[in-house]
Computed example of a mutant assay.
Amino acid sequence: MIDKMKNIVVFVKDFEAAKHFYKEVLQLPLVQESMAIMEFFPGPTTLGIAMAMHEAAMPLVGRHTGITLTVKDIDEYCRRLSEAGVEFAEPLEKTPWGKMAVVKDPDGNQFALVEG
């Protein structure tokens, strides 16, 4: 019987650029890091950012991940990301469910940001 989810993994090709983006620019809470994977968010479920080392992982790089991250003060956060040169797939806008933006990591993986 499955009782919990360990992690969700997003694959990248440029691990050093990803390291800078997720740790320094997005400032996600790092749990652990090795030479090929970083895990963020303490708790039973983590977000893994891993090197796409297997050919089956390569097509998974550079797409919308379906992952949504909640952000406090999303206006300020998106302003800071913009100043840092982060590419937005969808700019910050007000929607029926709240404020939302979609950002791209250096490999083109997309994450939704919502105000929480």
Score class of each variant (00 low, 15 high):
11 F>E: 01
49 I>G: 02
21 F>P: 08
78 C>H: 03
109 N>T: 04
91 P>C: 00
107 D>K: 12
28 L>M: 07
105 D>F: 06
41 F>D: 10
1 M>P: 13
84 A>S: 14
18 A>Q: 04
61 V>P: 11
59 P>L: 09
38 M>W: 02
51 M>R: 12
87 E>Y: 14
35 M>L: 07
72 K>S: 15
24 E>S: 13
33 E>I: 02
53 M>Y: 09
74 I>E: 02
41 F>E: 04
65 T>H: 10
7 N>H: 13
98 G>Y: 06
34 S>T: 15
10 V>T: 03
26 L>G: 03
99 K>T: 03
28 L>G: 00
37 I>E: 09
40 F>M: 05
85 G>M: 04
54 H>I: 11
115 E>V: 14
31 V>T: 03
4 K>E: 06
23 K>H: 07
64 H>I: 01
42 P>I: 01
63 R>G: 14
12 V>N: 06
45 T>Q: 12
74 I>T: 03
55 E>T: 12
7 N>Y: 13
98 G>K: 08
58 M>Y: 10
76 E>P: 00
64 H>A: 14
32 Q>G: 04
74 I>C: 01
108 G>W: 07
61 V>K: 01
20 H>Y: 07
57 A>L: 12
104 K>W: 00
23 K>L: 05
41 F>H: 11
98 G>R: 06
33 E>Q: 13
90 E>S: 08
57 A>D: 15
79 R>D: 13
55 E>S: 11
58 M>P: 00
85 G>A: 03
9 V>P: 01
1 M>R: 06
22 Y>C: 05
81 L>W: 14
6 K>L: 05
21 F>I: 06
59 P>A: 08
103 V>H: 03
23 K>E: 14
67 I>V: 15
24 E>R: 10
26 L>R: 02
16 E>A: 13
71 V>Q: 08
54 H>R: 15
104 K>Y: 00
102 V>Q: 06
99 K>M: 04
28 L>V: 00
103 V>G: 06
99 K>A: 07
97 W>N: 10
48 G>S: 14
112 A>D: 15
109 N>A: 10
110 Q>M: 15
77 Y>A: 10
90 E>L: 11
9 V>K: 02
12 V>I: 12
108 G>A: 01
30 L>I: 05
58 M>S: 06
78 C>Y: 04
50 A>S: 15
65 T>K: 04
114 V>C: 12
86 V>Y: 01
72 K>D: 14
114 V>L: 11
103 V>L: 08
75 D>T: 13
6 K>Q: 08
116 G>A: 15
8 I>A: 10
101 A>C: 06
1 M>G: 15
